[in-house]
């Protein structure tokens, strides 16, 4: 009985995974190979052409999603790393307060936050309207409905997921190890490059994973900030599923996206050197 206890304790989570992850995945995989329509019903025909058709029609949006997701992730890394670094090394006794501030936006709904960005960025809104009124911006200046607005929104919304894992990794770096590098003739820059950065890579890896995947798949930012010219794959899946009731295409696109992301992550992990990442993490 004793020896079974850990397994019994893990049982609820396994059940949860089975019911809410495996079952829907299998169902969706099955739907992605069916043909038919919402009125007459769908039947399994092992129609692999669903995939090629969907990809043919929506490859632009898929590539755009990867591009926007990648750009937003890069922006988050550039903004988030210094913030995490500053909190970890210079935060002093106020560390937890700064972390709380980073998390504060989560207390407001994701959609509402994005809508307020729409409000802020609108052509004649509180910011640009005022600047235009003062003649500081040309009248036809606009940000909304551009790629910049979508990438900006994604960056803003997912930034905490980049900062937190990097912070955790940096927090674990012993300041004396940095001092040791400086004692061994490394400049501050060299100490960072040779010691701090390599030791924080597991956090960077986790941060990129936790932001790139949801940012690429996100439909909200493109819908609210992107107008019609910046549709991402998430919007297409949503429309196909909820508006067109074309379940097979929506499912096929979802699986394609998942496959692309998984392959991307695998390549990324290899490029970064999984061995190094895991070793540093296991320290």
């Amino acid at each position: 009985m004793r020896r079974l206890t850990p397994y019994l304790l893990a049982l609820p989570s396994w059940m949860w995974l089975a019911i809410f992850l495996v079952v829907p995945m299998v169902a969706m995989a099955s739907v992605s190979l069916q043909t038919g329509n919402a009125i007459d019903g769908f039947a399994m025909t092992f129609s692999f052409s669903n995939y090629s058709d969907a990809l043919g029609r929506y490859s632009t949006q898929l590539l755009r999603s990867l591009l926007y997701g990648g750009m937003a992730t890069a922006a988050m890394l550039v903004i988030g790393y210094p913030v995490a670094y500053w909190i970890a090394f210079k935060g002093g006794r106020r560390k937890s307060m700064y972390l709380f501030l980073i998390l504060l936006p989560f207390f407001v709904s994701f959609v509402l936050r994005t809508i307020s960005w729409n409000f802020l960025l609108s052509d004649n809104g509180i910011l640009f309207g005022t600047l235009k009124g003062w003649g500081l911006l040309p009248d036809d200046f606009h940000v909304l409905a551009t790629a910049f607005a979508v990438v900006g929104g994604l960056t803003y919304n997912f930034l905490p997921f980049m900062i937190l894992p990097i912070y955790v990794a940096l927090e674990r770096v012993d300041p004396r190890v940095v001092e040791a590098a400086q004692d061994l003739y490394a400049t501050r820059a060299a100490a960072f490059r040779r010691v701090v950065l390599p030791l924080s890579l597991p956090g960077v890896f986790a941060g990129v994973l936790m932001t790139f995947v949801p940012a690429t798949a996100d439909p909200i930012n493109a819908a609210i900030l992107g107008g019609t010219a910046n549709t991402m794959i998430g919007n297409i899946i949503q429309t196909e599923y909820l508006t067109n009731l074309n379940y097979p295409t929506a499912s096929a696109l979802s699986f394609t996206l998942m496959a692309v992301l998984l392959v991307g992550i695998f390549v990324y992990a290899r490029a970064l050197g999984t061995e190094n990442v895991l070793e540093a993490a296991a320290r």
């Binding site: 012993d174 004396r176 190890v177 001092e179 040791a180 590098a181 010691v195 390599p198 030791l199 190094n276 070793e279 540093a280 320290r283």
Partner: peptide
């Protein structure tokens, strides 16, 4: 250093 502060990586 007291705790050696070796570079773990």
């Amino acid at each position: 250093f007291q705790s050696y502060a070796l570079f773990p990586h």
